[in-house]
Design a protein around this nucleic acid. Structure first.
Lengths: 103, 103
DNA sequence: CATTGATGCCTCGTATTCCTATGCATAGAA
DNA sequence: TTCTATGCATAGGAATACGAGGCATCAATG
């Protein structure tokens, strides 16, 4: 198993409450982590496209402030993956934390 | 910042108590994580060599059961890095855990 | 005795993830 | 008018990990 990146999981989590678009998702992750997590656009957009290819999210056009935005919505499949990813994160983080001390 | 692999940190941690060799380090990580973390040899040895190049560990020849073993010992520099890595892990894991719930 | 499994070290090719840098475009503030 | 924030996107490269292989010894199993 071993550690896999958390970005896709964080993106899915960000879309649970409501659909959002790339830039906003990145901001939200940064804010909620108090600046600790800060994924760049060159990382975010490819990750978003990959999630779409895998059927975890769906995109649609939206208009905000007169400009088109690409919105993403989490799918049923994405919800399932998110649940598994949460469990995996818990297991892995506990394992590492146990070893590194700070129990 | 964002997540960086934890293997090098786990290796340094494994060498704090006493010097060890590759195979044993991998076993120890697996045991202490109750099988959750299981790094392969194709991952472990290159990581070990890299740590040696960076001066985090030193290697020396040892004999066990009549066969030569390559032992590794953590250096002063390695201790310093381990301290920083622990702090970084704490910060990152808290950030992710906060966002993914399960507070 | 021969084979298999565990120990032990190593490298090569590949996949994934993420970064930096860059390009393009609009809107509002200085 | 120029700078900053917003907003989407790709290209090139670094780092991490994996799978598959090679090589060798020793104990147990058959």
């Amino acid at each position: 198993m071993n550690f896999k990146g958390t970005l896709s999981t964080l993106i899915l989590e960000a879309l649970v409450r409501e659909p959002s678009h790339g830039y906003r998702i990145a901001q939200r992750i940064k804010e909620r982590s108090e600046g600790v997590l800060d994924f760049k656009e060159g990382t975010l957009y490819p990750a978003l496209h990959k999630l779409e290819n895998e059927g975890m999210v769906e995109s649609f056009e939206g208009i905000e402030k007169g400009r088109p935005r690409r919105y993403y919505r989490i799918t049923e499949s994405g919800h399932g993956t998110l649940t598994k990813d949460r469990a995996e994160w818990r297991q892995l983080s506990r394992a590492v934390t146990t070893i590194l001390g700070e129990a």
